[in-house]
Amino acid sequence: MIPDFLVTHSGGFHADELLSSVILTRLFPQARLVRSRAPEWITAGADRIIYDVGGGYDAAAQIFDHHQRGAPLREDGQPYSSFGLIWKHYGRDYLAASNLPEADIEAVHAGFDAGFVLPIDLVDNGALSPSGPLAALTLPALLETLKPAFDETDPDADDRAFHAALAVARSFVEASIGKRAAKLRAEALVLRAIEETGEGRVLELPMGMPFRPAIVKAGADHLLFVVHPRDKDWCLTGIRRGDEGFELRADLPAAWAGLTNGDLEAVCGVAGASFCHNGRFIAAAKTREAALAMAELAVTEATAA
């Protein structure tokens, strides 16, 4: 059934119904978004989806509230907000409508739920309370700064602010999902490159991209460095040992640290070497051949230790 109306509550808004609206307005662009607490609107009907209002959760009746007694919980006991409920029931359709490859939908759906939706759910239910200097810069807090001031007298101010905030919320949802989809595309490219590299220590990629997750997934512990083009130059990059911290599997040679152009060429003996960061985690060269030559030198030094 294609709804004629998408119904959420009027008045002040929060991240959960804004983000729910992102999903639903993408799926049902022809539906009219109604913000109301009037009984005739927040009563379930065949022509509407009701969310974050209505006092019930019944997917078959298309009502998705979480404020009532006996509100729905995830399998692990954590609470849903309306966003989590809408994502649970409509997220896969949203991803399909966003032209995500079918093979990637489940992975992106689960990853977005865990990394984006769940924190919104927890904050909205008071199960997570960000603190410290960054608390006011969380996505829920920033979206709420778009509400009208308390003494705004224009009766349309809330709705105007809601739709302005909806556009902002949409950009964050689309960007987050886009990055997750891109990581899966990168993973496929990196896994293919690992297979082609065999037992070599240097992984060459066709462009800059996230590479460490795929290297870990493949169990390619033998790899020490990655080479790829960047604009008109080529990069030589180390591989971090862990998800956190900056320790590398192998550092670039200490003699290269902080050098550029002619000074770096003189020390490493590679024409076209152009830069090495003082931290020895990234270097650059003017050509592919120079970058690969630098990589082999770095491997030789690292494996000789």
Rank of each mutant, 00 (worst) to 15 (best):
251 D>E: 12
157 A>I: 11
246 F>E: 06
15 A>S: 11
86 I>A: 02
76 D>G: 13
47 D>S: 10
213 P>H: 01
144 E>D: 12
80 Y>I: 09
132 G>S: 12
19 L>G: 02
138 T>W: 04
189 L>Q: 11
12 G>C: 11
220 A>M: 08
176 S>P: 08
117 V>H: 04
70 G>W: 07
109 H>R: 03
158 D>A: 08
34 V>I: 15
251 D>W: 05
29 P>G: 00
135 A>M: 05
29 P>Y: 01
235 C>G: 01
17 E>W: 03
186 A>F: 08
37 R>N: 14
146 L>I: 02
35 R>M: 07
245 G>H: 11
82 S>R: 01
47 D>A: 09
24 L>C: 11
75 E>Y: 14
36 S>F: 07
304 A>V: 12
218 A>E: 07
90 Y>Q: 04
146 L>S: 00
101 P>A: 13
187 E>V: 03
304 A>N: 13
230 R>C: 12
178 G>P: 03
305 A>K: 15
239 I>R: 03
196 E>W: 08
4 D>G: 05
25 T>F: 07
134 L>T: 10
102 E>A: 15
246 F>T: 03
45 G>S: 15
220 A>V: 06
163 H>S: 08
34 V>K: 07
27 L>N: 01
225 F>N: 05
53 V>N: 06
4 D>K: 06
143 L>A: 01
159 D>V: 04
273 A>R: 00
217 K>Y: 04
16 D>C: 09
238 G>D: 06
168 V>Y: 03
73 L>F: 12
297 L>R: 02
